[in-house]
Design a binder for these strands. Structure first.
Lengths: 343, 343
DNA sequence: TTGTAAGCGTTATCAT
DNA sequence: ATGATAACGCTTACAA
């Protein structure tokens, strides 16, 4: 159906090798033939077949990006940065949404490997104790061995796999946030955590507890309710927390989306934020500033991480196999936190 | 480097044809050989080469999705729906961000065509008068002729190209919105429109003007300020409008993001919304409800459109070439509109 | 049920 | 500067 190199060659009265040369422009070709060839290309609406090319040249022009959910701005922003940066090298990005399922993640990595992608960028969190974790490590190791760069973007390193990691230091971010809450006078601080078992949840919770510990404030497990990373988790988690006899003076949400849910729940109950309840987010997605009240949160360098991951994936920025970079989060103080009401 | 079918065949002591058969499972193979083959596959960490397969079988397992900006939730949600639906057929989705540039769009479509993608889903708007438009039509026509399905998702039809269109009826959506504003008593209604020349901008503006006309309200061109589809355009557009001697009682924003910018500008000037100024959005992205005040807007069936586009692209849902479906938007009344202050 | 072998559309190595 | 031609790794008639 579609025209092939041979068709173009026939039409231009040259060999297919010559056509290939003018198309790739990496070989001397007489100007006159080049023009004849280009004319034939135009006449026939010829479009190279990337598969044939990939097969013959053993290279591919696509990279894979694995995210939990591309419609979540946290991932959308990172994926966009990866894509934008890699597009500079004419690379295409396959984007895969796992919905947070480690099994799906493995499946997608497998599919990407079949495609012989140049690189795979993995975002999101690990589930260190899941049965899938060992499989993941093995798969990544194999990928790297097969010359497929693997970049962990905003995700903990995968030791001994050769994957490059751009980690977010969630421990410090969460610690800074809780320290701030403490400094404002809060003592009864509740958390709506991310999914149990996720590395992100662990790191953020650990940072929170560390801040509590250093201030000599006892951690109350009944104030930790688990959830997901979505608005609904925040809404529901807040209901649970606000039904308690002794209400918290502050709620630390797993991320901004969760915080938005908390704010909605508070609004529904006519609880003034931050007057009667302080709320914090995490990530600083672009909407955090438009929430009401504007969210006090922790800014993660999503774009910087994505861009850099894109450059490393594209091979434009060097990175030693197994290198790990830690990216510092930044506390962003806005309006959703105030001192607790005395009494 | 990587193991090939032949390697597996050698190891299993069978022909490569047999290996291909067990891998594809579309041919009878003796259970004993199947096991030997699978064992060899595992031993060698064999992974099929999708390029070789695509070349030989003349089919590909990927589809392309073209968006303006994947980090914008409007596109993120649609792209996510397309991807999620097509993943059911084990298809991979290449996502391309054009930043609204028609030239980039053409470039990406070309790249996708090389990849011999199964289908291309185009989102966003057209620029009917741009020089690129004719090229776009020609390219789409060629794609369809080459058996690449093209689905226009939330985007106006492309006549005579064979592309299937899932249109949003922006005229009616905008009309309903302005009618509502009018019914609340507004007469001096300003607009911050999308980019001049975009089909989306035109349709929404036309709906707005139609509503004005049917109510016998004269349209004041000085109340229309152009912009982009981002928050900054809203912020800046609002500054311009609010600097006018005679301020509008309502601002119709090009979309929710723009409306968020307008709200921010109003907040900065201590202008009460909706008390002194009403503001409307468009799209009903998920954050619209969390804005302050919650945005009155027009809901577009983004997920429905994306899912359906994904199904058509995957070939799971039939659609006659050139078919065009119009999806109805819905007015969502929340808190950002009130009656104008008398006087 | 299994093997043989001819493509699929490029690139790349030799020649010329 | 250009042409043959052998890969590249798989699918798929056609045989056996």
């Amino acid at each position: 159906m579609a025209a092939t190199l041979a068709d173009v060659a026939a039409r231009a009265g040259v060999s297919s090798a010559t056509v290939s040369r003018v198309l790739n422009g990496n070989y001397p070709v007489a100007e006159s033939t080049r023009r004849r060839v280009m004319a034939a290309v135009a006449d026939l609406d010829y479009v190279v077949n990337a598969h044939a090319r990939a097969l013959a040249a053993a290279t591919s022009d696509v990279l894979g990006v694995v995210v939990n959910d591309i419609s979540d701005p946290f991932f959308g922003v990172m994926a966009g940065a990866v894509q934008g940066e890699s597009a500079l090298d004419d690379l295409l990005a396959v984007i895969c949404s796992t919905a947070g399922s480690p099994a799906e993640e493995l499946r997608y990595i497998g599919l990407l490997l079949r495609q012989r992608v140049r690189a795979i960028v993995l975002t999101g969190g690990h589930q260190p104790d899941s049965a899938h974790f060992a499989e993941l490590q093995a798969l990544v190791r194999r990928a790297v061995a097969a010359d497929t760069r693997v970049v962990l973007c905003g995700r903990p390193a995968l030791p001994d796999t050769g994957a490059v990691a751009l980690e977010f230091d969630d421990f410090r971010g969460a610690q800074a946030l809780t320290r701030y809450l403490l400094s404002m006078g809060h003592r009864r601080i509740a958390c709506i955590t991310g999914p149990a078992g996720s590395s992100t949840t662990r790191a953020r919770l650990a940072g929170h507890l560390a801040a509590l510990a250093e201030a000599g404030v006892a951690a109350d497990e009944s104030l930790q309710v688990p959830g997901g990373f979505d608005r609904t988790s925040g809404f529901e988690g807040a209901q649970v927390l606000l039904d308690r006899a002794e209400q918290p003076t502050a709620i630390v949400a797993a991320n901004d989306l969760v915080a938005l849910g908390v704010l909605a729940a508070a609004r529904e109950r006519d609880i003034d934020v931050p007057g009667r309840l302080s709320v914090t987010g995490y990530d600083d997605i672009s909407f955090a500033v438009d929430a009401y009240p504007a969210l006090t949160t922790v800014r993660l360098p999503l774009i910087e991480a994505g861009r850099r991951a894109g450059r490393i994936a594209a091979g434009r920025e060097a990175a030693a196999p197994g290198a790990v970079v830690s990216l510092r989060p930044e506390l962003i103080v806005r309006d959703s936190v105030a001192a607790p009401r005395s009494g």
